[in-house]
Simulated scan of single mutants.
Amino acid sequence: MVRLTRVQQQARTRAAVLDAAVEEFAEHGYADAKVDRIAARADLTRGAVYSNFTSKRSLYMAVLLDHTSPHASPLPATATSGRLEAGAAAEAFARTWLERLPLAGDSAAAGRLRSRSVTGVFDDRSGRAVLAAITRLESLMLGLALEACPPVAGRRVRLAELILTLLHGADHLAGTAPGFGDPFDVTQACGHLARTTLHDEWDPPHLPFVRDAEPRDDPWHPADGVADDGVLVILGSARLGAAEEAVRAAGGERVTVAVVSGDPAETGALVRLRITEFTACLRRAFPPVAAAPLHIELDDGPALAAAAGAAITDDTETAVRIRDGRIVARASGRGAGHAVAVAP
């Protein structure tokens, strides 16, 4: 008889709960799913479920992260060489993004699971704040990729916001009115949007009033050696929209955004799900030359925060400049990334 270690038994229990939860969420959806039914499907007790997952929401996020994956398809031929024109790049991105939408034959619950929808899951005030912050970061990521595409233009974040508004609208309609609209039309519309000329200036009114960064001369010893010289911004999951302040002020210098969360199983998992999938879509749609000087660090965010002496909460906003293995400037609070990026 083979005896399982405690770790092996925990892993087996967790896997059984996740398998049962996939069935429950696909059949009933998030709102109507019951933890008691999930436990019964897995032949476990309710306590066994909660010993692995602190809430139904954390369990749902674990399902989305562990039991679903983006549908792969090869890059368009034009995306593997040279620089894509902005409209063509936007169309390639839209095609990749729309692949995850539910099929016409999916039930409503199964469709939401397929599209990794979090509609109605984070409907509290703090959850909505995190969703807004994530979408602002996604707009920045797409905008920077479009800015690297010809024709040469200035800021394209507002265009990215319009494209994401259209794509999220298509996502919503796919779940509420299956069969409505043509994804090819949506793709072409995204291309047209990317070719639109918008007045888009970067001039936040609060930045002139941000306190200067504090000069420092401290050793930099992150646990695993990540984060090279440059600007490191530690942002909580509700403050991700502040990433652009550092990027614009850095003027092309490398900026690393380390993401932290006060609740890794819920808001932290939400950030990981959205940003991981979004990054995959960008990589499949844009050629490597479109890579922006922005690196999002999800795995080692807490370790980098600890090395920089930053708090780990949803509202964290701390930045340091690293040079030759030392911290030479530091700032905390609103505008920290900007202050460090412009520091002498």
Rank of each mutant, 00 (worst) to 15 (best):
R211S: 09
G309H: 06
F122P: 01
S55G: 03
E201H: 15
R272T: 14
P208A: 08
R83N: 05
E27A: 08
G225I: 04
C281E: 11
A319I: 05
G268L: 14
Q10C: 03
D43H: 05
S115L: 06
L193D: 04
D217T: 12
R211I: 00
V257G: 04
L304S: 01
G87L: 02
P102W: 12
A306F: 09
A31M: 10
E317Q: 05
A319R: 07
R114C: 02
G169V: 11
D185P: 06
A160Y: 08
G181Y: 14
A311Y: 01
A305F: 08
T80V: 15
R116L: 00
D324I: 03
R128N: 00
G82Y: 13
F25R: 06
G111W: 03
H199D: 12
I327W: 09
A174L: 14
L207G: 01
A145E: 00
H168M: 06
P178Y: 15
G301P: 01
I312L: 03
V231T: 13
P70R: 10
I38Y: 07
I134T: 00
A306Q: 11
E317T: 00
D43L: 05
G111T: 01
G111I: 02
S69P: 10
R156Y: 11
P205K: 12
G230Q: 07
L144N: 01
A223I: 02
R321H: 09
P178I: 15
T80L: 14
S117V: 01
R57Y: 04
T80S: 14
T78H: 08
A249S: 02
D124T: 07
A310K: 10
H71T: 15
P287G: 14
G335D: 02
P215T: 06
A145D: 01
W220Y: 09
A177R: 15
A89T: 12
P204W: 13
P150A: 03
S115V: 00
V152F: 05
L18W: 05
G175E: 15
A246M: 07
E138K: 04
H295I: 05
D106W: 02
G127A: 01
P102H: 11
A90G: 07
C190I: 09
T256W: 10
L98T: 12
A311G: 02
E27H: 03
A319G: 06
S51D: 08
R12I: 09
Y60W: 09
G127H: 09
A129P: 00
L164S: 03
T187W: 07
F286S: 03
L282D: 07
L140C: 00
A148I: 02
D228M: 07
